[in-house]
């Protein structure tokens, strides 16, 4: 049975200028695999990710024919049940660790807080688990990092801490929204391989949201390409180069390459018909 099933998901925002649909009928199912969601900003990819956790604030509304996680109906779940799911079974990593970590709390305290409060572990046991988690994301000096404040960490280090924090409760599904966009290239590679190893070793499901199709293609098993709130193409990553949809092809070709020609880069063809 698949871990997550979403059918005909819609996210609508009621604004002064009328209702705006950010996500318009997205369906997908996810097993214990790596699913990439790719699109430009405004394509609804982030909203799709947040909808799974029901993290859309008013005036936004979520509607779907079906949205189940491990057999549990996410649409009917009470706010209390959702809180139990968030973090514990479904975790989310955001783009910039600067805004996701509490700036006035030491990293160690933030890592152990959940363990001590939710799982009622003792201080020593919580600490031991936090250090194990930091080691799992290949932080060489976990003791020092535990005593550091978030601003004392580099971007890559902060993002690893975020991932460690999300992994402590052992979630079944991780939603990563542009987890490497704010990082340097060399660090990006490391963070990605950490994520990759974790998914393999723990058998987690992963939703990887990004605007970089080539990156997603290298890293995921399956890809959804979104445009204007809709999925325009769904394909196996292995077949990415055989993508048929012109929008997908456009996303593939628009990045400059080292040693490439210096002529104008192919510009993306945005056809309003695809959104219908």
């Amino acid at each position: 049975m698949s871990l997550l099933e979403v059918e005909n998901l819609r996210v609508t925002f009621d604004t002064e200028a009328g209702a705006v649909e950010a996500v318009r009928g997205v369906s997908f199912s996810l097993g214990r695999e790596r699913l990439g969601i790719v699109g430009e900003s405004g394509s609804g990819k982030t909203m799709t990710g947040r909808s799974v956790l029901r993290l859309i604030r008013p005036p936004g509304r979520i509607a779907a024919d079906r949205m189940t996680f491990d057999g549990q109906d996410l649409l009917r779940a009470s706010e209390r049940q959702m809180r139990a799911l968030r973090g514990k079974r479904i975790a989310m990593v955001m783009q910039d660790p600067k805004y996701s970590l509490n700036p006035v709390m030491k990293v160690g305290a933030q890592l152990t807080e959940g363990l001590r409060r939710r799982d009622r572990l003792g201080a020593n046991e919580a600490r031991r688990r936090a250090i194990t988690a930091l080691e799992a994301v290949q932080i060489r000096d976990p003791e020092r990092v535990m005593h550091a404040y978030p601003h004392e960490l580099s971007g890559g280090m902060g993002q690893r801490v975020m991932i460690a924090m999300m992994l402590i409760p052992g979630p079944d599904l991780l939603i990563a929204d542009e987890p490497t966009s704010a990082l340097d290239v060399t660090v990006q590679a490391e963070v990605l391989s950490i994520l990759d190893a974790l998914v393999k070793d723990r058998g987690m499901g992963l939703i990887f949201i990004s605007h970089d199709l080539r990156l997603v293609g290298r890293f995921c098993d399956r890809i959804l390409v979104m445009y204007a709130g809709r999925v325009v193409e769904e394909l196996e990553a292995a077949n990415l180069m055989q993508a048929e949809h012109p929008y997908t092809r456009g996303l593939l070709n628009c990045l400059p390459r080292i040693g490439g020609t210096r002529g104008a880069l192919p510009s993306l063809d945005r056809n309003a018909d695809w959104a219908v």
Binding site: E40, D212, C254
Partner: peptide, 11 residues
């Protein structure tokens, strides 16, 4: 910027 918008801006 997005990868696709980057191409337009570089052009």
């Amino acid at each position: 910027l997005d990868a696709s918008v980057q191409a337009e801006t570089l052009n």
